[in-house]
Amino acid sequence: MWSSDILLSVKNVTKIYPGGTQALKGVSLDIKKGEVFGLLGPNGAGKTTLSSIIASLHPVTTGEVLIESGSIYQDLINYRYTIGLCPQKPNVDLQLTMEENLIFAGRYFGLSESKIKERINYLADKFSLTKYLKSKAYMLSGGYKQRFVITRALIHEPRLVILDEPTVGLDPHIRLQLWDFIKNLRSEGVSVLLTTHYLDEAEVLSDRVCILDQGKIILTDTPDNLKKSYGKDRLEDVFVQMMSEGAQE
């Protein structure tokens, strides 16, 4: 039975790469409308694989990804209009200015020129990027490029934004700006899948977190419930305890 507050559902997904590596082992989760869903786990847990599958970059081996009760694979092109992907590496066109990058991104999603302009102005203002719009991408630092990649992911007003380690390598004050922006997305009803290594980030931003280890979901809950059930003050301490218990087993 499909609940009306769920935007996307991952059902028993396994992923075996062509080389034979099994990255996901029967993962199931739901992402609700307007929530920030934190995906946590150690290196090699399968976080990027899962976010890539949800971003429709790679296929599942078995299982299903559903959006509003229908498989995303039934109408993949329309599904892609509903998502925005911000990958770990800031993969902008280095020869173009940032504004040109955003203009092309808007065109890929079929936006009109006036709508593109409106979105660029809005997002550049939100991210304090206006004065960098005319800069060539190769001239900007990694942090600014990363912010532009997030902006690019939002240009077509997706309903689900997939942020794969969005704050890696960013200065602390830019991280905080980005946190505000993610909170703002939630308030606008946009769902966010946030893959992160930073547990403070997950704790502050996520409505629910999902801990993934060796391709399996260990648990999914709110940060507050996790802290209560483990008797810890910080999510980071919960995570460390869980990982050490897992290692002992």
Binding site: A55, S56, I83, L85, K89, P90, N91, G110
Partner: peptide
């Protein structure tokens, strides 16, 4: 091998 702009193109609304 590097920045992976192709990963972005592969998630655009086209086959």
């Amino acid at each position: 091998e590097g920045e992976g702009a192709i990963s972005y193109y592969l998630t655009l609304p086209l086959k």
